[in-house]
Design a protein around this nucleic acid. Sequence first.
DNA 1: TTGTAAGCGTTATCAC
DNA 2: GTGATAACGCTTACAA
Lengths: 313, 313
Amino acid sequence: MTRESLARRPTIRDVADLAGVSTATVSYVLNGTAGQTITPSTRERVRRAADSVGYVPHRIARALREGRSPVVLLNVGAMIGGSTVATLVEGMSAELRRHGHSLLVTAEPGGIIADVIDAVAPRATLDLTVVTTGGEEDDVVSGVAAGDHAGFAFHTLAQLRHLVERGHRRIAFVGPAEDVPFARTRRAHARSAARQLGLPPLVETVIGGDEARRAETVERLVREEGVSAVAAHSDDVALAVLAGMATLGLRAPQDLAVIGFDEDAAARLWRPSLTTVRIDGAAYGRRAARVVLGLPVPEWDSAPSQVVLGEST
Amino acid sequence: MTRESLARRPTIRDVADLAGVSTATVSYVLNGTAGQTITPSTRERVRRAADSVGYVPHRIARALREGRSPVVLLNVGAMIGGSTVATLVEGMSAELRRHGHSLLVTAEPGGIIADVIDAVAPRATLDLTVVTTGGEEDDVVSGVAAGDHAGFAFHTLAQLRHLVERGHRRIAFVGPAEDVPFARTRRAHARSAARQLGLPPLVETVIGGDEARRAETVERLVREEGVSAVAAHSDDVALAVLAGMATLGLRAPQDLAVIGFDEDAAARLWRPSLTTVRIDGAAYGRRAARVVLGLPVPEWDSAPSQVVLGEST
DNA sequence: TTGTAAGCGTTATCAC
DNA sequence: GTGATAACGCTTACAA
């Protein structure tokens, strides 16, 4: 070991010098470059030299050279919501790491910021606020399960179908009062799901405000619109409906059945507990990782989502 | 305009050629480098050339040159929890952008992954799973409000103090059954808060499992331990306690008072509604941004956290 | 089988 | 006032 032991971070040059070879050879060895024939002994020498000086390749330099860095950018729109996004991030991150990449997350409602992209030159980007608007065409992540496109539309269909199976026909789709990431998308999917199921047009409204406002909303739905079931945009929204019902002394599912979406931990604690749709976020995350890396994406072997039975329907 | 209009992204060279100056001059002009005297006319020519070709500096190249990129890495431990982390990310991201930087988030329970760091060479990193432990880093981000250190310990103290003011002395601190990011930290803070308030040692337990298990936990607290109030690790946990009480037919706050932590939207919907601690995440986010950039951090002008009164205490 | 050297796009240190 | 040019650390033709 020479005086390389200084503060400076060891470069490929240091390794090359120590091993008595050129930087090219070091690069070939360390990257296992195909089509290069290096003698085992040289190989060994380089390896030793590398970890003797504690060499770790400089990713930025490599990124400059290659035009992209080994990171994937995911925009989730906002750091809120049920379990789907959380598990999606986990699954995607794990799968990417298995392939030498890193997942970096942003939470920009307006989509991925251009500055971020050129600050990191990501290998790929994925914007949840866009992907979920599917567009089966542009939804490569979801794939097909049991013959159907397994995107958000699919889960929404499952949500409504559950109500239909319970005998409901006059159904309301209730969204959040504030503008949250997937509000519009979900509404659109609900409409087309209703059509597919041969239902009359959905009653559409939003719920929010204080206790009185919530109760008012629910009352209108039940008394004026004659709705017998609610499909909610999310579990949060579903709980607001249940809360409004409690205020009015209405019971679920007798007076009004309620189903949530994107299972949230709090929903199981309610009385009555909430029936909701659980989405296999981790599986989508792993798929997303493979899609953006251009790896083959496996078939769905289990259901991408399922209705979790509670007492509210 | 020359044949630069090809697919290639314009470089500083292209601008220099078009403006008839050297790349150095372009760099000086575009970066407003101090201590350089450039004639207004040259300046103007460079500017024009730059946006005529649509030049945008290559951040990766700059990162290589400067040794770091204009991004800040934030590890949040996991994509779950109440509103604090969500608003913190928003606030931090906004403040960073005001200063030409970008925020990138990871959700690694074990701390920031080394690979990620050298993939992006961030200007700075911040690990929430570390910061909230009350070490030195915590100090700088949290600062001082009304004479007290305004960190997580402070909020925990506020949580317990609320119960004390309501006349409680035999108090339990209830955590989640699973291992979540800040569990240990919160527990430690709760212990020392109890000492500061001159309370007897806290009864410590966790809650989880199914309805029966939850009820059992609550029952033990009330009947065996003689506890009159619960300070919960989070709103989720607090709701589990309230649910257990409902199962047992116990009422809050008469039979057992419950206060949550890190306000979650669902908590306000409960009957009884949950008293909890709201933390000004956005403010912490802005402070964190300034700290990591080495900017002066303003004094707290409003409370860093406050108890939000519900019916449960 | 291995080495040389030309980039990748910037910034900053000199000269002029 | 401005311009060459040498880095930054790596990959990869192309030579040898």
